[in-house]
Design a binder for these strands. Structure first.
Lengths: 223, 223
DNA sequence: GTATGATTTATACAGTTGTTTTAATCATGC
DNA sequence: GCATGATTAAAACAACTGTATAAATCATAC
């Protein structure tokens, strides 16, 4: 029988987590029913109650998965660019990030889930910030600080980093708008994404250099 | 009686629209109940059915309001910057837009509603794009085209425009994250917003000038 | 094989929601 | 005043949802 095949029969608990992650990301917490999750996961309606106590318990575990996945994807990006000289490091970071965000092949359920948490924050957002974002923020800031030739407690570092991050993430979140304004057959092919990345890189590098020419802005606060 | 005072007793229909706009923006279509809307608006539960046929009918009219409001706010921005020289025009545009987005005094219900439509697009998004965004896109593109010293069918215009727009809108959408990473007492005071705007302006102007030094990229498509 | 605990199943329940219906109330013109 | 149409009010309905319960089934150790 099928249940004897460990490749097909992942534990119910894990199947529920995977399905829930996908559905919560795609439709949002309130627009997903326990019945839908269980049906897609091939589990009984009571499975959520049994394995996670209630719907919110399931959601919390999904968010923990998301926080870990976000952290890991950031570490991957950092390490892929680490060995390069500063300018190339920035260029590579932007290119890889944009591919992860825009490539239709990638399923970025965690990005969608975070986008939802940003519109309707729940206590789960704290977890995402603490475990998914903060741990890598110093290394990401360092990438910009080196180009600015300054230290991490210079406010300009974070302003420039946000300007870069903003451009990349905006292309993803504005997809529904751009799809309605672009020519009919438009798609985010790897080539299109590359050329977009090149623009963001050139634009941002010039921005950084302009900011580098201005005096430092010491922050009186340590994160 | 109160119903005789035209200042207090706006027509039920209009009161419903105003309350619904606020609630839909704040909580999303599915998380607002007709009962809640009617209660806040001081109307009977059946009022939505009577005036708008059903919940979706009410939402559609709210979206029409939003599209008009978005268009108007863009026209206001454009006209406020129009008379200035190109660089100052960009600087003013960025500063005013950021104030509208970040100032806690401003209630930007239409921005929130659009942000929700971007995550969960409904047919209503078409209306927002057609009536709220497209009509002013040429004038906004022109602002950048002049700085690039090129024409509107140069791809670089829209790449640069998006880079600017991305920075401004990102500061708003990422509020829940930055609030959790900023120092405890942090607030978007007018002074903070001004300094942010100055950064975005300097960063973007340098970006535009760097892009202007590269060859034009003709688009084969007319919007 | 059989006892025991883990897991799954089927079903029921109570609360909420959008919608509809029917009656009551109001405003207006005569 | 009164008839008429517009608006508001109160109540009910059916569908859906999260949760809980108790029985059935399974896996495992002995």
């Amino acid at each position: 029988m099928a249940t004897s095949n460990p490749l097909v029969d992942i534990e119910t608990r894990q199947r529920l987590l995977n399905v829930a992650a996908e559905l919560f990301a795609e439709q949002g917490f309130n627009n997903v029913t326990i019945r839908e999750i269980c049906q897609v996961a091939g589990a009984n309606l009571a499975a959520v109650n049994y394995h996670f106590r209630d719907k919110l318990g399931l959601y919390k575990e999904v968010v923990e998965m998301a926080a870990k996945a976000v952290h890991q994807s950031k570490v991957d990006l950092i390490e892929a660019a680490e060995a390069l000289p500063p300018e190339e490091r920035l260029r590579t970071y932007i290119r890889l990030l944009l591919h992860r965000l825009l490539d239709p092949e990638e399923d970025s359920w965690m990005d969608k889930l975070i986008a939802r948490e940003m519109i309707d924050p729940t206590p789960a957002l704290d977890l995402i910030v603490e475990k998914g974002i903060k741990p890598t923020s110093m290394r990401l800031g360092g990438m910009v600080a080196e180009l600015l030739n300054t230290s991490l407690n210079d406010e300009r570092v974070w302003q420039c980093f946000l300007s870069i991050q903003a451009q990349c993430l905006f292309y993803k979140s504005s997809k529904p708008i751009t799809a309605r304004m672009a020519p009919p057959g438009f798609k985010y092919t790897p080539e299109v994404i590359d050329s977009l990345a090149e623009h963001v890189y050139q634009f941002s590098l010039a921005g950084i250099r302009a900011v580098a020419a201005k005096p430092a802005q010491r922050m009186e606060w340590q994160p």
